[in-house]
Amino acid sequence: MLIEQRTYQLKPGALHEFLRAYEEEGLPLQGEALGNLIGYFKPETGDINRVIQLWGYSSYEDRAQRRAALSSDPRWRTFLGKNGHLVVAQQVELLSAAPFSPIR
């Protein structure tokens, strides 16, 4: 399994607005296209103006196909147009499991 960790740095004070909009509009669209949400997190300490998503894919090719489908969905582009102003920066990491990891 390939895990994609996406960290979104939000504008200060935008966390609750972002989470509300994402839960109502963004998550259903991403869930439909990407399929395997492993977890969605917000920090309780440190830099609290961010959210972290973990998505699972069977391969790099699976990820590329699913991300392309999401990017071409006009509903997703509309969501980004309405809520993209809340995001300051984004970081994406692709993770593969160590041989002893419970998640493979």
Rank of each mutant, 00 (worst) to 15 (best):
L70M: 05
R66N: 05
H85I: 05
L95G: 08
A97K: 05
S71W: 00
G84R: 01
K82Q: 14
R67A: 08
D73W: 05
F79R: 00
R63P: 06
N83C: 03
L80V: 12
A64I: 10
N83K: 00
Q90E: 15
S72W: 03
A68W: 01
P74Q: 08
Y60S: 13
A89F: 05
G81R: 01
S96T: 15
L80W: 01
R63G: 06
L94P: 05
Q65T: 09
V88T: 12
Q90I: 13
L86T: 03
E93F: 09
L80R: 04
F79V: 05
R75L: 09
G81M: 10
R67S: 02
L70E: 02
A69C: 05
V87K: 08
V92W: 00
S72T: 10
G81A: 10
E93R: 11
R63W: 09
D62T: 02
V92P: 03
T78H: 07
A89V: 08
E93M: 14
Q91S: 15
R75D: 03
S71L: 11
D62I: 04
D73H: 00
S72Q: 13
Q90N: 06
L86I: 07
D62P: 03
T78C: 00
R67Y: 02
S72K: 14
A64K: 11
A64L: 14
V87I: 15
F79W: 12
G81D: 07
L80A: 06
G81C: 07
G84K: 01
H85T: 09
Y60H: 13
V88A: 14
V88N: 04
S96M: 12
Q91A: 14
P74R: 03
L80Q: 06
A97C: 09
A97S: 14
R66P: 10
V92Y: 02
G81V: 06
L94Y: 12
Q91E: 15
V92G: 03
K82F: 03
D62K: 00
H85V: 04
Q91W: 07
W76F: 07
Y60L: 14
P74A: 05
H85W: 09
G81Y: 01
K82T: 07
A68F: 01
Q65V: 11
E61M: 02
R66V: 11
D62W: 01
L80F: 02
L70G: 00
A64M: 14
V92D: 12
Q91C: 11
R77Q: 13
V88P: 06
H85K: 10
V87P: 11
Q65C: 04
A64V: 09
V92C: 02
R75N: 08
Q65S: 13
